[in-house]
Design a binder for these strands. Structure first.
Lengths: 219, 219
DNA sequence: TGAATAGTGTCTTTAAGACACTATTCA
DNA sequence: TGAATAGTGTCTTAAAGACACTATTCA
């Protein structure tokens, strides 16, 4: 059975967040083909109906092509659509966002990592996609364990404190943060493991759950 | 310029919430064409690229066709996609949800209004769409003025109290609810207007803003 | 020792929740 | 008057936020 309607173009675009020099950054791609060839844009591409099980699968394929590995955290963001957002025709782009721990990035491979405060003008409606992704990240950072997925598997409480401040864009009291995060039961100390330096050694922690945990209240 | 990729089918599906007999309900449609002809399902349809500006516009068209008027509150929910969700082929459905004040419904026109607790098995992945819509509604009801869009433009504080309880599925203390809702500045009394009955007359209110207002804390 | 980061105790302010009370209408 | 809904005051408990303090390491 076939439909009689002409169908729009179907694609995915990905917003890849990471932390570089204590700043929230995006990983961008230089477009290899027209339109906007040579410009910096969000990594994306058409849905391959022969190959992809669903659009999330398409997003994973795009990310693997760009980074060479799977993102530890990937979530659907929003779907952007319309007559004019792409010069090739009426299109639907299902946008995803992912969190990439800096420790996984080989920066010789992925050069185009730019602070979100300092992005160039992006083609298509990618500025809008980025704005929505940042808004979602900030909002979820307030009410969940989301920011922890920007850290490597093992981290200190100070690392976590810092990443919450960077994703939320606010200062958080150290003592209150520690009290509240420990009440959430999202992390556990690794017995006997500490990070050392020219100061008191810091207890190392890991996530207790692999999945995102929502909080009842703000952190 | 054209793409070489075969494109998936593009459609929209809508979850229409309303309140009937103090219960949260969905407005369903009986399918006029195969597949699943004659079955109850979410109102939906293909994107019409000649006619629709974007998928939200397509959702509005679908709702107008079903109800005869525009929904006061409409928001994109999530995009469902994949090889197998529709027998007609690889498809993308951009799902929307809308809030419909019962006062706008002519129940002779729209017969298929069923409590969310008492829905039949729906075709395709519509059960999944409904589950996600209810989850979103409950979550937003806790942190915003969203439930007010299920009421007519003029209502009492008790009406609002009831609709918050129904959308959240919990009991809320009357006094605390009143204190908190008045702090949010989302409603204003209509001077000199009261609803009367066999009891003390109740002050009538209206929303101060036409748009949804998020709250800092839970209501 | 001082610098640096780690980690805790506690006080004040604010919000949440419970609940009892008063108010106004109609039958 | 009592039944019904409207609307308020206040007390207790819990959370949020601020801030000062102690702890441990290395140079």
């Amino acid at each position: 059975m076939e439909t009689t309607f002409p169908q729009p173009l179907a694609m995915v675009d990905t917003t890849l967040f990471t932390i570089l020099h204590e700043r929230l950054c995006l990983i961008l791609a230089r477009r290899k083909e027209p339109p906007e060839q040579g410009e910096l844009a969000l990594p994306g591409g058409f849905v391959h109906v022969q190959e992809d099980v669903d659009t999330e699968d398409a997003a994973r394929r795009v990310i693997r092509a760009k980074l060479g590995f799977d993102a530890p955290y990937l979530e659907q963001l929003y779907t952007f659509s319309g007559k004019d957002r792409d010069t090739r025709g009426w299109s639907i782009s299902v946008a995803y966002y992912a969190l990439i721990p800096a420790s996984l990035l080989d920066h010789s491979q992925v050069a185009e990592t730019l602070p979100v405060e300092d992005l160039p003008k992006l083609p298509f409606d990618h500025d809008q996609i980025v704005a929505k992704a940042i808004e979602r990240l900030r909002s979820k950072a307030t009410y969940s364990s989301l920011p922890a997925f920007l850290l490597p598997e093992i981290f200190t409480l100070n690392d976590l404190h810092g990443i919450y401040q960077q994703t939320q864009g606010t200062r958080l009291d150290k003592a209150s943060f520690r009290h509240k995060i420990m009440e959430q039961d999202i992390i556990e100390p690794i017995p006997g493991q500490f990070r050392t330096g020219a100061h008191r050694p810091a207890q190392l922690y890991r996530l207790t759950h692999r999945a995102l945990t929502p909080f009842e209240r703000k952190i």
